[in-house]
Simulated scan of single mutants.
Amino acid sequence: MMRKMAVVLCLVLSMWAWLSGRGLSQIITNPPQQQVPCFFIFGDSLVDNGNNNGILTLARANYRPYGIDFPLGPTGRFTNGRTFVDALAQLMGFPNYIPPYSRTRGPQLLRGANYASGAAGIRDETGTNLGAHASMNEQVANFGNTVGEFSRFFRGDNASLNDYLSKCIFFSGMGSNDYLNNYFMPEFYATSSDYTARAFANLLLQDYSRQLTQLYSLGARKVIVTAVGQIGCIPYQLARFRSNNTRVRCNDKFNNAISFFNSGLRSLVQTFNNGKLPGSKFVFLDFYETSQQLYLNGSSYGFEVMDKGCCGVGRNNGQITCLPLQQPCEDRNKYLFWDAFHPTEVANILLAKMSYTSQSYTYPINIQQLVML
């Protein structure tokens, strides 16, 4: 594992030097021609772009300083600028950002929609401690409503509709909140006392398999699913163990627990690709490995602060997200994390670039190869 990481690191360091020379924003703002007709996104606050704005929840980011570096300001994205899927959409050549489902109807849906919701999880009860949200089950149901609208656009020609959807890219990033806002929150949920870490992972995978199969039945054929990142290394966790200004260790209990889910998800992708869902192609995106690379070797990517958020430092003072109108750090490009949970824009762009073309973080093919199928 260490030798593999060293090889990967050398490759990525070379890419970083090239990126630094040209500028990250230039690469993303000069995208290729649009490569797929539509892009559908499912997930949580890591990719939510405004679906939680109008509901009663603490998981909301439609106020400054969120969006401080985004052209449209605070839209509901849980970062200072673009999210991972914003950058990914640009790499696929989309001229505009994929809109949130909550504000998108009619022909606009033909190029895709973002169904993600902050605090959402695979399980329905996940994240209810923060208020309302759309769980994965609800997000899949919302996509079902979208397919119903599509039927009218295609005048009942299901063959043409299915052909259209088969060319689209589907992204699903779920599981983080099932640990952060469920399994490891015993004051609100009993799951950690009811299930071992392995049993809980199996439970999540059983539900997730059903949900992804439902997406398949609704027309999804080219699907990206992500591993849970190193949630034991986010500022929310590190703030608990920080003493003075020394670098602290990650929470191994968290990281070890999610390893059961991540390995099971990779196996599930293999099962789907080996004939369980004929005609589909699933790609496993290893966010655990990419987040580990950035955290352990952040200085090589130009980051100077890897264990604190640019605002909303962590749990020590009860602040986990940016406060309204809070003054964030001045140079966001030096920070890996924007707040206690979410990466900065520059980190999101790096993750998108690494995931799009590298074979080291995706299985069995990279995202660019999936797009070209």
Rank of each mutant, 00 (worst) to 15 (best):
K222G: 01
P235A: 07
N202H: 12
F84L: 08
T357P: 00
V305W: 05
N51D: 11
Q26G: 02
P74I: 11
V223I: 15
F272G: 01
Y179G: 10
A347Q: 06
I367A: 08
R64I: 10
L24M: 10
T75D: 04
T79H: 01
L204T: 07
R266L: 12
L56P: 00
G118N: 00
F40G: 03
A116C: 13
F272A: 14
T128C: 11
L268T: 06
S217Q: 15
N52C: 13
L215H: 05
G175S: 08
D163Y: 04
N244Y: 11
L373F: 07
Y164F: 09
R111F: 03
N182F: 01
A227Y: 08
N348Y: 14
C322Y: 01
V147A: 14
Q319M: 06
V7T: 14
N366C: 04
N273A: 09
K276M: 12
Y97H: 13
L215S: 04
S135Q: 12
G318A: 03
G50P: 00
V283I: 07
S355H: 04
T191N: 15
Q359L: 15
L336I: 12
F42S: 12
M5C: 11
F170T: 00
S299E: 11
V228R: 08
Q327F: 11
I231Q: 07
G21H: 03
H342E: 02
L203P: 00
N317Q: 09
L277Y: 01
N297D: 14
V36R: 03
G302H: 09
N251Q: 06
G144V: 09
L204V: 01
N129Q: 15
N96I: 11
S14K: 09
K353C: 12
T271K: 06
L205K: 10
V8L: 13
P31W: 03
G309K: 05
F341R: 09
W18C: 14
A220D: 01
N366Q: 07
S193T: 03
G275P: 15
P74T: 13
D286A: 08
F154L: 09
N366E: 02
A190M: 01
V147M: 12
L294Q: 06
Q206K: 14
G121M: 12
L351P: 00
V371D: 03
G81M: 03
Y295M: 10
N273S: 00
A257L: 07
F261Y: 14
S117Y: 08
S14Y: 09
I28Q: 00
L88M: 15
F337R: 05
P100K: 10
M354A: 09
L238S: 02
G67I: 02
L58E: 08
L88W: 01
R221Y: 10
V223A: 08
V7R: 14
M174S: 14
S14A: 13
Q139A: 11
N262Y: 13
N202T: 02
F84Y: 08
N256S: 14
L205V: 05
L19G: 04
N114F: 06
R64K: 14
P278N: 00
C311H: 06
T213F: 11
K276F: 01
K353D: 10
L9R: 15
V8Y: 11
A6V: 07
Q368M: 15
A116V: 03
R332F: 03
N316W: 04
V7P: 07
L91V: 01
R249V: 06
A132E: 15
Y189I: 14
G121S: 13
Q139K: 06
L72R: 15
T321S: 09
N348T: 05
F261G: 04
